[in-house]
Structure formats: structure tokens, C-alpha cells
Design a binder for these strands. Structure first.
Lengths: 227, 227, 227, 227
DNA sequence: TATGAATGAGACTTCATTCAT
DNA sequence: CATGAATGAAGTCTCATTCAT
């Protein structure tokens, strides 16, 4: 009977506790952190194991190789958040402008501001080394995400709210600011944690404002400035 | 800018000795390509040497370590083209809208479409591993580049052509599309060389159109569809 | 030979408890198979346990280490069947030629064609790594077996049936074909299960014929082609 | 130009001498010794390298993996000794009995008594782990060797010197004593280096005598006893 | 200067062994 | 007794770096 303790590693049931269900998740979390932080090659499996609180050997009990661990991290962190979004999109009742703004907000809450954003940075950084993963990501994430964006834009054009633009390029009006922000925060942005006066929310608001200014047939007034 | 010379072998600076002098450059070119494509860790110095046509030992004659080679690649490729640009900006005679579009065009010709764009991809990808390089890049390139963008925007606002927006965020209206395109082409974009219907030029045009639509007090009509 | 029992679970010595007592034997059987097939080093204890139908931990309940398991396998499988043989030899009533042929037959039935032959293959293969086992085997098996062969040959020479030959070498006329066949079947022979036209029985017959042809003072005619 | 010296490590031209041509051979020799002595799995590459006088990394300069090193050892030590033998066989001028005895003698000199014999032991021991190598050995060595034996026996039968026997089995009259001796000397035989009174030559003589006694239509008198 | 053979620290991975349940 | 999750020493292989030629 371990003593009760206030430590977050909470009443651990002994060094060699049997937690088969919990292990993979802990390892994947640790791996996500480290892969994002240091890249695939520079991350040592021993470090991943240590951060998950287990030994090197234990990691290989759950993942047959470092590469498979990497793939599992990618898979876990991108898996089907899109279905949920698609549903929200289809049942959204406001204007298309509001929908687009809502889309950015939700993206930021669920992806952009979370560890999941690190995955994108990771994939873009390592695409050259793992074409297999890159094209997997392309199909499973990029394509699906672009479809979502396309739906929103088409909704706006169909209702006459947005002007007609070449859809293949218009998608990037939405995609580029998102991808950029994720890359930026996980690279250059890391050096200057609190750049005075710059917040992700402010960045997003101006980007959305600008997209809508350019896109709307009757330009809506830009949202009031940040407090 | 090699000088033209006739005798490759003797007392004058011929082919051989020129080659000799050119070695570091060839190595840096090869290294840039490989670092961009595969990242720092996954690039083997032997490969760099081979691509430059020399032996592994020779590489270490010019660069004391792999890390120094990396730094040299970064240093060489971010060397300021900004003075030249600043001059062009200050002597530009058209409208600020035209200037902004011109700025994008020039950027694409001199940076975006050239190997130089690879350095941005490289830095962003490896920022986590080499913070000192990242912050060096931040100071030498990002800050200066942002200044340039700021000047353009201020010119437009001062003349009443652009509406007033928070400059700290507005900068990213210009920066994000540029950075995104460079990252994209060097990562995910590499898998699908000629995605039908998508050209960098088209991408840039729509981005600029949109920025100007959102920025101009009297929205100029978007540029005609095809050049 | 399991007894039929109705209740697998309770107070009587049913399936479960018998199984329990049988465990070491099942482990040793499984280990013999795998050691023979793959050698000591390439055999994983987990595999042995799995083949015996128990977990890895259980194996270590019965055998303190892999090496001890190995030794136990060897010990079990070389345990003297020789006393029995010696008796048969001493009470044999036919000619020495018949005795020799009988000896081969019995050897084939009881050793050569059974899993016991595997132990010889195992010992010879691993002798270099486990000299103590090898010399143990030498003393317990080889010496004793050679004695047996010596007795047979001496019986034949004493009765004038066999010509006089140097006993130290003559022993190998009998031993070599036996050892060879065991090694062969457990190594190269495994690749080609039914090499057309070659049977162990045929091999043995010709070997015996030849030995007797060479050994007998009045060469007996070789045995007829087929049984 | 190495200086003449009495030391076997002969005026070594420096620690890091360039001996690209010599290295593979030295490594293969060392590997042969160790593989034969300890088996494939129990041999560590570092040990092989050390015995060859180089570092671990150097070994991988010449052989891409431990398995490839193993294959190279096998290939080197079995390659084309057979062509030479075939020629000798076809031009042999004595009786078939003499030829058979000569064949044993030559085999002993060139294979049996040399390190090459270790290869056979090695293959038979490891056949289970490397079916690929086993079948390679079977085709390249066993088949060819059996052909050679077959030729000799057919020569004897054709000339009426040997009686007719089923060739498929007769081959093993010759093969078995050879294989046995090689296995024996590299396993059990290693424990007792100089077993008094037993020499390989004596073993071979008696085996040949016995084969010929059994095979010849007019049994030739056995060769006189060993001095 | 240029070479490329050689090095050895360090990474991934395996597996005999332990031990809490 | 039995289990199987966990461990960590040990082995294979890589690659930046050195240095004799």
C-alpha cells in the first residue's frame, strides 16, 4: 500500500505497476512533445521512455520501432476531428462570414492552440525524410481539411455573400494563415514567448477580417480593434 | 561571378585553382539542398561532399564541423539583399497598391522561386534544435524584412490609400502568405509536383488581390484572371 | 495418456493439477524441439514457454535460467537407455553380424528416428559454447555407447566371425554412420523433406551391409534390396 | 615497402595504415575462426574486428552486416575447389580403389584438416537459422561434392572393379565418414585434443579400407596397420 | 591540398530475467 | 502457482570526425 501523496504521480501503485492500457497514451504524449520539440531524428527513444516514466525496453513493448511510434503519434493526433467539424458546418445557421470566422475560432481552440498543432510543424519539417507519412498526411488531413474549407466558401458564393473566385486558390486564403501560425509558433515564435502586443487571437482576427473584406460582395465593417 | 579564364592548369588562376577556390561554394550549395530536403540530422556530410564532387575529408578542410557547415549555409543564404530592396522601395513611383504587388513579385523572383527559399524552410524546421540560429535569423532577416513591409504599409496609410490597421498584425498579412508558400513547396508540395491548376503565380495574385481588397480604402478591382 | 476426468476444476486430481505436474516435461519437450531447430542462442525462452502453453514467467518458476533449462534438456534426453541395451546385447543369441544389424535397427527405432536424435545434433552444434556440457555428454553418452559398440565388435572377433581390426578405429565404422544421419536429418536434410529415393532405412541397410562386407571373415551376401 | 623485420606484425606502417586490399581477407579469417568456434549468434562483430586488428566500425566498411559477413565467409571457403578436383579425377590413371583412397587423402589435406572444415560444422549447426544459407550450401557444395563422388563410384562400377550398388545410397558411404570427422573434430573432439592412439589419418585409412572391402568385387587386402 | 581508411561514441533494438499482482 | 508488464545489459549498426599518406 503506497502512501498517499500530493504529488501528481499520485499514489503510484508500485514501480512495476501493471498499466497496460495507460502506457501507450503516456508514451504517445511524451513522443508528441519531443518529436515536435526536436524533430524525429534528434529525439532519442530513451528520452521518450524516460519522459513517459518507463524504461527504454518498455517502449518497444508497445511500439515495434521508432518509426512506428512516430506514425502512431501522427495517426492519433489527426484522427477524425473532421467528421465533427463537417457536422457543425452543415448545421451552422448564421451567415457565411460568421461561419468562416467561427471556423477559425474553432480551429484555434481545437488544433492551433493545442499540441496537435505541433504535428503539422513536425510533418512539414520531416516531409523530406518520410514521404510515406507526408502523403498519408496529405490525404488524410490536408485533403479533408481543404474539403471543409471549400464547403464554406461554396456556401458563401452560392448565397451570393462571397464573390466568385477560383476555388483552387481561394482555399489557401484560409489555409495559409492557419499553417503559418502553427509553423511560426513552433519555430521562430518559440524564441520570443510574449512578443508584446501580438496575440494569436489578434492575428486571427485581422486575417479573418481581411479575408472577408476581400471576399464579401458588400464588405462588412472590420471587427473593432483589440482591446 | 567567376572570371573567364583560358588556361586551366598553370600559373594563372585556371580551372583547377578556380575550382579550388570554388570548393566552399559548391559545398555550401550542396549542403543547402540536402539540409532543406532532409533536415540537419538526416543529412550526412558524406552525401554533401559527394554532391559537391569532393571527398569527405575535404569538407572538413573548409568547415570544422557539420554544425559549422550548417551555420555557414545559413549565414550565406540570409545575407542581406534588403539594402537593395529598401532602395527600390524608396524610389518607387507608383501607388502603394502597385508597390505591394511589386514587392510580392520581386520577392517571388529573387527569393520564393529560388533556392534561397529553402533556407527559410530549413530555419523554421530546425529552429527547435538550434535556437541560437533561429534567433540570429530572427534578428537578421525577420526583423529587417518586417521593417520593409512596415514601410510599405505605412506609405499606403500615410497617403490615405490604405485604411488604418494595427501595424503589428498587418505585417503578417504580407508575411504569412510568403512564408507559407515557401514551406509548402519544400514539404508537402514536393509530393505533388504539378498539382493541376495551381501555380505559385496564381497563388500570389489572389493573395495580393485579397490583401488589397481588404486594405484599400477604395477597393481596387481584382486583377484580371490571367496574365 | 491423460486419464479421462469429468470435472476439470475441483478437488480431484483433474486436468488442471495433472497439467501442473506435467509442466516441466512440456517445457523440456518444447525446449528440446526449439534448441535442436535453432540452436541455443537463437531460441527465445518466450517461444519455449509459448510452445509449452505457459507464460514466460512460469518457465522461470521451474528453471532458474535459460542455461539451466538447456542443461536439463540435455540431462533428460541422454539419460541412460544403455543398461537396457547392454542386457539385450548380452542375451542376444544370433550371430554377431545379426547382432550388429540388430543394433542399428534398435538404435534407429529408439534414437535415430525419435526426438532423442535431436539432442546429439544439439550437443555437437553447441559443443564449442558449452564445453562442460560437451564433456559431460562425452562421458555419459559417447563413452558408454562406444563401450557397447566395442562389446559387439569384440564378440564378433572373439568368435572368429569378424577379422581383427584396431578397435579404437573400428568403433567409428559404427558410430560415424549413426552420428552423420542424425546431424544430416536435423540440418541440411531438413530443407529437402522427401528426397526422392532416399530413406533412412535404405541408408542404414547399405551402411550395415558395407560394414559387414568389410568386417566379416567370410563376407555374407549383402541383404536383398527391399524388405 | 615494408622493412624486413622478424616481428609478425612487421614494421607496421602506422596505426591507421591504408590496407584496403588486405582488410577483407583479415576480417574473413578472423570471422571464420570465431564463427566456427562459437557459432553465428554467439560471435560478436566487435570480437571479429578486434581479432583482425581493427575497430568495430571498420568491419562495417567492408561488410554491410553481420549476416553478409557470414555469407562471405561461407562463400570464400567453399568456392571452386571442386573444378580442380574434377580435373584431377578425370585424369587419374590408377585403379578406382586407388582413386577413392586418393580422393580421401586429398580431401583431408585440403578441407578436412584445414579451417575450411569448420565451415561445414558451422553450416550444419546453423542450418535451422539460415535456411537461405543452408540451401545455398546444399546447391553449391553438397550437390557438387556428391557429383564428384558419384563419378568415382561409377568409374569403378563401369570397369567392373566395384560391385553394383544403388548410387543414391552409396554416395553416403563416402560422404558420411568425411562429414562425421569434420563435425567430430569441431565439437566433441575438441575436448580431447590428443586422444591417445587415435589419429585422423588412421580413421580415414580404416574407413577407406572398409568401404573398399565392401565395394570391391575382389576384396583387396586391407592396408597394413598404422606404424 | 586532397584523400579515404579508420575510429568510437552513441543510437536503436532484443531478450533473459524480475516481481507485483 | 501463474502471469505478463517492466527492466536494463548487451549487441548491431551509423556516421561525424581524424589523420597518415
Amino acid at each position: 500500500m503506497p502512501t498517499t501523496s500530493t504529488d501528481p504521480s499520485q499514489a503510484e501503485p508500485g514501480k512495476r505497476s501493471r498499466r497496460k492500457e495507460a502506457r501507450p497514451g503516456e508514451l504517445l504524449d511524451a513522443a508528441l512533445d519531443l518529436f515536435v520539440e526536436k524533430g524525429f531524428a534528434a529525439t532519442r527513444v530513451e528520452e521518450v521512455a524516460a519522459r513517459a516514466g518507463v524504461s527504454k525496453g518498455t517502449l518497444f513493448l508497445y511500439f515495434p520501432s521508432k518509426l512506428e511510434l512516430f506514425k502512431a503519434v501522427v495517426r492519433l493526433n489527426i484522427a477524425g476531428r473532421f467528421d465533427e467539424w463537417k457536422l457543425e458546418l452543415q448545421t451552422f445557421e448564421g451567415s457565411s462570414s460568421e461561419l468562416l470566422r467561427y471556423c477559425f475560432t474553432v480551429w484555434w481552440e481545437r488544433i492551433g492552440s493545442t499540441k496537435a498543432s505541433g504535428i503539422t510543424k513536425l510533418i512539414l519539417s520531416e516531409a523530406g525524410n518520410f514521404p510515406e507519412i507526408a502523403s498519408f498526411y496529405r490525404q488524410e488531413v490536408i485533403e479533408v481539411g481543404q474539403d471543409l474549407i471549400r464547403c464554406i466558401l461554396q456556401r458563401g458564393m452560392a448565397s451570393g455573400e462571397f464573390r466568385e473566385v477560383d476555388m483552387n486558390y481561394a482555399i489557401y486564403l484560409v489555409l495559409a494563415p492557419m499553417i503559418f501560425l502553427m509553423m511560426w509558433r513552433h519555430s521562430i515564435g518559440m524564441c520570443v514567448p510574449d512578443e508584446l502586443g501580438i496575440t494569436p487571437e489578434g492575428y486571427i482576427r485581422l486575417q479573418v477580417d481581411n479575408i472577408l473584406q476581400g471576399l464579401c460582395v458588400r464588405a462588412q465593417p472590420p471587427s473593432p480593434s483589440t482591446p
